[in-house]
């Protein structure tokens, strides 16, 4: 099988095979994560520690990112509407829709994958190459149960919260520019938002954060626990975890959006 593929596709066949193999291992990890989650006691202490770490690590940088994103959105939409209608219009609407439905969830997930996802891959990778993960097994617990599940749960609970904070800071950033640069009263800005936005729009973005939390945490854990080959291997695993997480977030975002639209949650 191996040889046939190699003969057919040359070096590419080998890569294809390896990709398929890691896909299989990834699915296996996901499967055993869910099995353990429902079968064994959850390590709440570890989960809380991870929640604190992910939250504290990522809050400042996500807030900062989103504040400026909100600002630039306001600046651009103000400039565009001014160009066409001579007055800046609907800044609040543009900012809030872009942020709540797309940029908030996506950018937060990306920033968190660069921060907390990388940290997870590096930590688990180091544990793997120094045999600490094997040691967990010999001391009677399971790496999935002790390491992966707490991180998954922490991500699933913290990323949505971070996104809500991000959405809010982004909208405030937009307000800041709307007021200072375009002299739009705060009330008008808020009305632009409230009159046009419904709970559905918020739910649309909020639901996606759970998908991203799952993708980023499982990718980072997977890259961590399958690390091979010393310090260099840890470096590689960490970079790969971040690159793959970010790509997955952007790609899956499209499909998640399409699906939510099909379900009428827009």
């Amino acid at each position: 099988m191996n040889a046939v593929l190699e003969a057919l596709f040359g070096g590419f066949g080998k890569e294809l095979l390896e990709a398929a193999e890691s896909m299989g291992h990834f699915v296996f990890l996901v499967r055993s994560t869910f099995l353990w989650m429902f079968r064994a006691k959850i390590e709440w202490r570890q989960t809380l520690i991870q929640m604190a770490r992910i939250g504290v690590d990522s809050l400042p940088v996500t807030a900062m990112t989103m504040f400026f994103t909100g600002m630039v959105l306001a600046l651009q939409s103000g400039a565009t509407t001014k160009h066409f209608f001579n007055v800046p219009l609907f800044i609040g609407t543009v900012v809030s829709f872009s942020i709540v439905m797309e940029l908030g969830p996506v950018l937060t997930a990306i920033v968190v994958s660069g921060r907390a996802g990388a940290a997870i891959a590096a930590e688990l990778g180091t544990m793997k190459v120094t045999e600490q993960i094997d040691a967990l097994y010999t001391l009677g617990t399971d790496p999935v149960r002790y390491l992966v599940i707490p991180r998954l749960l922490a991500f699933l609970s913290v990323l949505p919260l971070l996104t809500v904070v991000s959405d809010f800071t982004g909208i405030v950033g937009g307000l800041f520019v709307a007021r200072v640069k375009y002299d739009i009263p705060t009330v008008v800005y808020w009305h632009d938002i409230i009159d046009n936005m419904s709970v559905k729009h918020f739910v649309h973005g909020f639901l996606k954060t759970f998908v991203f939390a799952f993708l980023v945490s499982m990718t980072s854990c997977y890259k961590g626990v399958t690390t091979r080959g010393g310090a260099e291997g840890v470096g590689k695993a960490t970079t790969q975890a971040v690159v793959i997480s970010m790509t997955l977030v952007l790609v899956i975002d499209y499909f998640a959006t399409a699906m939510l639209n099909a379900l009428g949650i827009t």
């Binding site: 544990m127 120094t130 045999e131 600490q132 094997d134 040691a135 010999t138």
Partner: peptide, 12 residues
């Protein structure tokens, strides 16, 4: 079983 790892494998 108890297992002593060659490199210790302590949780750092």
């Amino acid at each position: 079983f108890g297992y002593l790892f060659q490199e210790g494998a302590l949780f750092d």
